[in-house]
Design a protein around this nucleic acid. Sequence first.
RNA 1: GCCCUCGUGGUGAAAUUGGUAGACACAAAGGACUUAAAAUCCUUGCCGCUUGCGGAGUGCCAGUUCGAGUCUGGCCGAGGGCACCA
Length: 844
Amino acid sequence: MERYNFKEIEIKWQNIWENKKKFSAKIDKTKKKFYCLEMFPYPSGKIHMGHVRNYTIGDVLARYKALQGYNVLHPMGWDSFGMPAENAAKQNNLDPKTWTESNISKMKTQLKKLGLSIDWDREISTCSEDYYKHQQTFFLELLEKKLVYRKENYVNWDPIDETVLANEQVIDGKGWRSGAVVERKKLNQWFFNISKFSQNLLDGLDELETWPNKVKIMQKNWIGKSFGCEIDFKINGDLPVNNIKCFTTRPDTLFGCSFIAVSADHEISKFYKDNADFLKFKEECSKTGTTEEAIAVGEKIGFKTNLMAINPLNPGHKVPVYFANFVLMDYGFGAVFGCPAHDQRDFDFAKKYKLEIKTVVRPLDKDDSFEVRKEAYPGPGILINSNFLNGLEAPNNSVLETIKIIEKKNLGKKQINYRLKDWGVSRQRYWGCPIPIAYDKNGNAHPIPKSMLPVKLPENINLNVKGNPLDSQKDWKEIIIDGKKLTRETDTLDTFVCSSWYYLRFCSAKEENYGFNKEEIDYWMPVDQYIGGVEHAILHLLYSRFFMQALSYKNEKFNILEPFDGLFTQGMVCHETYKDDEGNWVSPEEIETIDGKKYLIKDKTKKIEVGPSESMSKSKKNTIDPENIILNYGADAARLFILSDSPPEKDIQWSEEGIISSFKFIQKLWNLNVKIFGEIKKDHKIDDDDEIEKYTNKFIKKITDNLENFSYNKIIANLHEVYSFLYKEINKKYKKDTIINNYQKILIAINPVIPHFSNECLELIKAKKIEWPKYDESMLIENIIKIVIQINGKKRALIETKPNVSEENLFVIINKDETLSKYLKQKEIKRKIYIKDKLMNIII
RNA sequence: GCCCUCGUGGUGAAAUUGGUAGACACAAAGGACUUAAAAUCCUUGCCGCUUGCGGAGUGCCAGUUCGAGUCUGGCCGAGGGCACCA
């Protein structure tokens, strides 16, 4: 038996691909293009199994499309700005740039070993000046279009480290490093006006037919469109407040209003700024958790003002005004009217403060005496106790009718609100793209002239300072524009900005004058298939969609508005978890299996407890290093295993047995190849070539269908099937041409999955025209078919016959069948259902 | 609390429009080959009488249908998302 030398063969083909620039993409207008993109990695230093899965899935698609004759663009780059580099640099006393660049070079080597069909000529790195200088231009263009603005916003402030913390750096309300109680602090920050495009971003979702529904729903909820109206409440009281505007989606329940609730940040709070009780209440508000669940379950608290509001539809009715913790300042007008009977939050609040609960909607199956008692009734029904609104159908009719009346009486107007908030892009960090802005003595912002770009990030600076290191770079901060001394903005851009347009940069990675080149964009965009983790379902994908809208706004640069035509979200890679007898996590590499039981390698008296399979993470030590896998089993085996068993959109369990089995399978394929190669040389002269032709044809159809549907796990199953078939079939004496023709097709069909192996075999059989094999529909027709015979819906026999059999003829065969006639004897046949060439159900 | 998705052997999973449930693989058991091991190949979902056959069976309970893993309703369970959005 000849061993398949994967080490030699894989490196051989990787070198051929690299030297011949096999995957270097060029515009060719005679060909249809296919842009295949996987989410680019953060250069943490090592690739992990998640990358292997993500990039294998993409590579299978890219190679398949290339074989089909598409002009494929399949690039790769690095999302290389961000906090980890800054933290690592501080720890190891080197600068983020060196750390990042060395990580990139390591990871690039690893990715190449996977045999990915990547156009490395287009490699980009977001932390390089070549990349971020264009981003600064975009920033200024957006500023000109008034899509960028500055406003005050709250940040998480760590008073010990004197730094701003990201949400994930705040643990139980304390800074992750210092342990200091995190404060809310107001800072001036830059914002992208994403909310301007709320409706466009919502409408655009309908065009994205192949996106997972889950992702579209998540984005839809995030944008959160709601239809309602604003209502003006007149106010009586001892403060100079004449009215409060509220937004509501249920103006029809206005007769059930028993209080007004406003946010603690509402403008009327200025009258309470010296009120100790109010300040105490406000602090209470900030303590409540901010997750939706915490609030839904959490207690509603309020602070009563002396103000009374007049119900605009029912002027004789006055209701109290409260500050309440469940009202947000940055949505609507920061004020709502409370209708306890038909909103659970209002109901909870009314219960606590003993406010009136007046039922104004009855469910369709109840009469007018219906009363809300234990919980709010937010469902549909008929309006009651609402004077001139009585009898209207809620909510659809009643809402529209009420808005008409409110508008006619000039009490308010129809309004549509979105939850989507503007995107704050300022980060008080060093390792990011500098914002091209400078300030004068009065604090006014001035764009840095485009001729003075890029604003370079200073190098070799001291990171071990409090706050943002850029802030203490006095010589860098000072800048002279038009002879005036200004101070630079020291905030850098959120790294999500970098990843919001990198797909455009890949189309013209070398363009120097601008972020992209229109001709190249027009050819390559949109991305035909984008592949990545579902964790980016909202932010990254929404920001990217926004960026296309923003760049196109007020100009004609693009033919398209949606960057990603197709989206596929792959599942995670999981592994069993292990703990020793002291409850410490143990990595798979420290474990040995003896007689089915697991022990520590260094101490075999210690048994290991096997826990559930969970997504690979360093903290649980259940990671497998792809580099070792490739070293021991080869890239093809790794690719084969990562695709097998589970559908790509679901989580996959990594196991040692699994990778070994894939490794062995490749050796088996090699043995088969050697055998087939021997048969070819013999050139038998037997004519009956039908079977192998037919099987190959069916196989090609299956693989093609499965590739089109991302059913990559089924492709691996098909591969096992074709192996078993050939293993048996090759003992028959086929003609040389028949074997070569069919075997070549099979080898090409498996090329996307195990390209090194496939190319080696194709070379051995001297294959010339390597293109995706077509299948012949007429060859899919079987000579002999099996028809299921059911009696009273139960399968009783399988009958083999020629296709196109009539009901009468089939019944003749059935009557001859021993087992079937046993059932049919002496029974009256009531009915026969015949599905041609498939099934007959006999009812007796 | 709200929204979404999913429940099929010991395990990961297959099953065009409703039409042979469990393809393919992992694990376990048995067998073949071998002096032996490794490697390879074959058999085995469950319960019965034990060659063959029969029965139950796709989370649970109903329904539609000649026929339901697939469609409808209700329930139970698991996972994911959530920014108090009025």
